[in-house]
Design a protein around this nucleic acid. Structure first.
Length: 316
RNA sequence: GGAGGGGUUCCCGAGUGGUCAAAGGGAACAGACUGUAAAUCUGUCGGCGGACGCCUUCGGAGGUUCAAAUCCUCCCCCCUCCA
């Protein structure tokens, strides 16, 4: 992997990351690489707030809207795709700019993941079935006996992580905690992390506005079409906020107004989780979306300082 | 006008003499997080104090009782039904 200089723009949903990225595209000739776990789905660009076609015309955009609703994504797979996309962007002579809101994906890209092998699908299915039957408490007790270290870290109610740990053990024959001792390899990137932060209450006002605007632009129509394509609510693509709410309305379970209220509530809660995640990252340089005036200077200086040290050619 | 039902902590909602600052859910706040991560999960959640505790709270005002959100009286408001 080459030593690329890349900019990462992080922040909660609706803080204007796309806009900030386009500023960099205009100023430096950048290419955007997504790191958002839901914006990868093809059939639901509006509901997942993918950059519009006009926005995507400003510069090359990668890893948006390429996946079928039925297909699952996960951090390791995404990181692999992102490395390719970053390299391709650099090959075009553009500054790669990672943009997104999935903290774990960004971490997987920038720090790497432990080299845990893929899980045998049969094992996975059996574990999930067993958990559904026995409940997370008893599954946790089982985990204690095979991987006490992981069990100590995972709460007995956290069925998702308990199942993951058990899957890894049963599928690979080694405890998850054992695998995780081997840290992932961080790529040799030189990274500038920029975070966009807004007060949550202020952000919520805009999130409400954005939902109204999505509905005006045909979010309901988009979901109806997606449902026609894949009439299954449990499919990975429909797990993004907005989908379950709109599907509930389409099935007559609630009014559109109620669906909108739920959508907003869930989006706000999600934004809160994103803020919690990113604020722990001490490498992030925070900016207010209302004042991005120094952004180009910040990035420009950072690029210059890197060239001095690493010499020419690192970026092309 | 008559007959019922109801007003509970930010919201919904349990609670019908003590074990009630009051179940449960939601919201909110704080947090965790290496392969589902827009997921999953945790803690706090009337005020003050380290705990024991003290103070304020269950529409309002009185009363009964050692003790009331819970019983009685009157008053205010809401809903349903009959007129």
């Amino acid at each position: 992997m080459r030593r690329l200089s890349i900019v990462a723009i992080a922040g909660a949903t609706g803080t204007g990351k796309t806009g900030a990225a386009l500023r960099l595209a205009r100023a430096f000739g950048a290419g955007v690489v997504n790191f958002d776990s839901r914006q990868v789905y093809r059939s639901i660009p509006l509901v997942t707030a993918q950059p519009s076609l006009e926005e995507q015309e400003v510069c090359p955009h990668r890893l948006y809207g390429f996946l079928e609703l039925t297909e699952a994504m996960h951090a390791a797979r995404f990181a692999g795709l992102a490395h390719e996309a970053l390299a391709e962007t650099a090959d075009q002579g553009l500054l790669p700019v990672l943009v997104g809101g999935t903290g774990m994906y960004l971490k997987a890209i920038l720090q790497g993941l432990s080299p845990i092998p893929d899980i045998d699908p049969d094992v996975r299915e059996r574990v999930l079935a067993e958990c559904a039957q026995k409940g997370s408490d008893r599954m946790h007790a089982i985990l204690v006996s095979v991987d006490p270290e992981a069990a100590a870290r995972i709460h007995p109610n956290d069925s998702q992580r308990i199942c993951r740990a058990l899957e890894v053990y049963r599928s690979s024959g080694r405890p998850l905690s054992d695998w995780q001792r081997q840290k992932g390899e961080a790529p040799p990137y030189r990274v500038l992390k920029i975070g966009l932060h807004r007060d949550l209450d202020e952000l919520t006002v805009d999130l409400a506005r954005r939902i109204d605007s999505m509905l005006e632009q045909g979010a309901l129509y988009e979901i109806r079409a997606a449902w026609k394509e894949v009439p299954d609510r449990t499919v990975p693509g429909f797990s993004g906020i907005g989908c379950p709410e709109l599907l509930a309305h389409l099935h007559g379970d609630c009014t559109l107004k109620e669906a909108g209220a739920m959508w907003l509530k869930n989006t706000r809660a999600y934004a809160k989780r994103q803020i919690t995640w990113f604020k722990r990252d001490s490498e992030i340089i925070w900016r207010a979306p209302s004042d991005l005036s120094g952004l180009e200077e910040l990035v420009g200086n950072w690029l210059d300082s890197g060239e001095d040290r690493a010499g020419a050619g690192e970026n092309q």
